[in-house]
Amino acid sequence: MISKELIAASTKPMVLSVLARGESYGYAIIQQVRELSGGKLEWSEGMLYPVLHRLERDKLITSRWQTSESGRKRKYYRLTAGGTRAMRRERQQWLAVHDSLVAVWGAAHV
């Protein structure tokens, strides 16, 4: 079970990275994160939307409404150029943390 703090901290890079794979909408993003993490990353669903709202306000993502074949109106998000840059920065930082931890653990022969 991943702690609340870690989930909160990883939401932004997670959303940016999912959207880097292509345009998507809230419900599908949640499903995708659940599948990719093998169920280890369990988001409280309502948390995602304020995050999307903030990322859009910060111009890292843009949105458009589109009606699906079932007639349901969905808000699709995609990365902006700034969002792509932010995603790369996040990746560097997370990988740096990850590599450091692995190096420490490796040294300790865990």
Binding site: S44, E45, G46, M47, Y49, P50, H53, R57
Partner: peptide, 17 residues
């Protein structure tokens, strides 16, 4: 319930803006 009750949901948006 999964989405969050209105009284929990709305403050999250207000925090943002």
């Amino acid at each position: 319930r999964r989405l969050g009750e209105p009284q929990e949901l709305v403050p999250e948006y207000h925090k943002v803006d």
